[in-house]
């Protein structure tokens, strides 16, 4: 059993996932979310992860982790194989952001995506001041960032609609706490839950 408390954004994702459902976590990191879903909700889980240290950490949590590069797609998984597919803080670092969303729709009925909100006021201010933003959720310089596809809430919602995804829930966080007032400017992290058909 996992005893550690989940990071608040992962807890929000976990709250959107039905007990005993089949879950695929793309970019599952150290497997904390999947271990939690397995132990607390009795879910059947698989994670995809590329980093060696994360694969090892997830293995130690007895998570079903498959080492692979998400850029090469989700060919490993049959259509409709899962109830929920999760892409947590990974979308912004992918070359083929649209393709991965469409592939997610293929393998699961429900999707969850989280990403840093590029529309945060501090980022806008930084641009006005003539510099690319560097912030706790996007802590890289423009020339060495893995985050090549940063977006705002509205940007994501438009792409989701283009991909035929129907957003059912949205959770906007700053420092792990929900943001209700001017969220598109004040949230640092956006989480979306959507139906894929």
């Amino acid at each position: 059993m996992t005893t550690m408390t989940l990071r608040s954004d992962l807890q929000q994702i976990a709250d959107w996932i039905a007990p005993k459902s089949a879950v695929l976590d793309l970019g599952c990191g150290d497997g904390a979310l999947l271990a939690h879903l397995r132990d607390v909700k009795g879910c059947r889980c698989y994670g995809v992860e590329i980093d060696d240290d994360n694969v090892l950490a997830a293995t130690r949590l007895r998570v079903n982790v498959l080492q692979a590069d998400l850029e090469s797609g989700l060919r490993m998984f049959d259509d409709d194989r899962f109830d929920t597919v999760v892409l947590s803080q990974t979308l912004q670092a992918m070359h083929r952001s649209e393709d991965i969303l469409r592939d997610m729709a293929r393998v699961a009925r429900q999707g969850v995506v989280s990403f840093p909100n590029f529309g945060h006021w501090r980022n806008a201010l930084s641009l006005v001041a003539g510099r690319m933003p560097v912030a706790p959720d996007i802590p890289y310089q423009w020339y060495d960032t893995p985050n090549i596809h940063l977006c705002t809430l509205k940007d994501f919602e438009i792409l989701a609609a283009q991909c035929g995804l129907r957003v059912t829930d949205r959770s906007l966080l700053a420092r792990g706490e929900p943001v209700h007032w001017l969220p598109s400017l004040r949230a640092t992290l956006a989480l979306y839950r959507f139906e894929t058909r």
Partner: peptide, 21 residues
């Protein structure tokens, strides 16, 4: 190896797969 992994995932079997560089 991935062929084996895919077949196991299709059957909901527990599997850890590592691709060592």
């Amino acid at each position: 190896s991935r062929e084996i992994v895919e077949a196991l995932v299709a059957h909901d079997r527990d599997v850890t797969y590592a691709e060592i560089d």
